[in-house]
Amino acid sequence: MIHRIFTVAFFLVLLVSWEVASRSGLWSPVLLPSPLNVLEYMWQATMDGTLVTSTMVTMKRLLLGYGIGLLFGVPLGLLTSRFRILQDTLGLLALGIQTLPSVCWVPLALLWFGQTEAAMLFVVVMGTLWSVLIATSDGVRSMPPIYLRAARTMGSKGLHTWVNVILPASLPYLIGGMKQGWAFAWRSLMAAEIFVTILSGFGLGQLLQYGRELLAMDQVVAVMVIIVAIGLLADRILFSPWERFFHKRWGTGSTN
């Protein structure tokens, strides 16, 4: 309870100082809009649909790319964990590529796909795929072999073992990898949208960049706030419930 009070108080103070600073006239209102201005923009942009459309465009790219990344990352990770040859080849490649900040895919994607949806998707997939692949493979390989022996003596084999033993045993790792993949995908998508204006859809990143071109600081800050909110919400909705479930079941402490 007391923690809540501190949290609320902190953000109130922050907002009030911001409002006071912007009213003080020390900075040009073009550079420092007040929180009320930002709110006003949000309200108006929500009403005229700009914000909603942009958010939808961005989320569609993100979810689609992320989904594709998972669809390939998990099975490839399972295969990599299973076959030594894949571990020495694909696994190594994944490790290398994963060190590349996913923003770095943007120029390449543009050259390959031009200013298209495919370029956006490609960047998101690259952000997701490799970390999910590595996490899946690590998760499976770190599983205590005793689980497999126990499962075998109870008559489990083949697909049943994969679905009922190997996959659940590596789920905590997998969720960690999915979370990291999500973070990479989200960041790289924003970078891509800021770099590239494409006609097929106007995402949040593009709205942000457009705000800069118009010198509309309230728009810039408002979009930033939305981006933060989406990040937080995704964490709360997509990952936190799983993590809480695992901590309860496995009895593990809090991860990071």
Binding site: R149, A150, V165, R249, W250
Partner: peptide, 18 residues
Amino acid sequence: PGRDRMVMFQEHALFPWL
């Protein structure tokens, strides 16, 4: 392995996800 012969290990080998 067969269901007629069940094994109990030193480490309990229980599945923590269940």
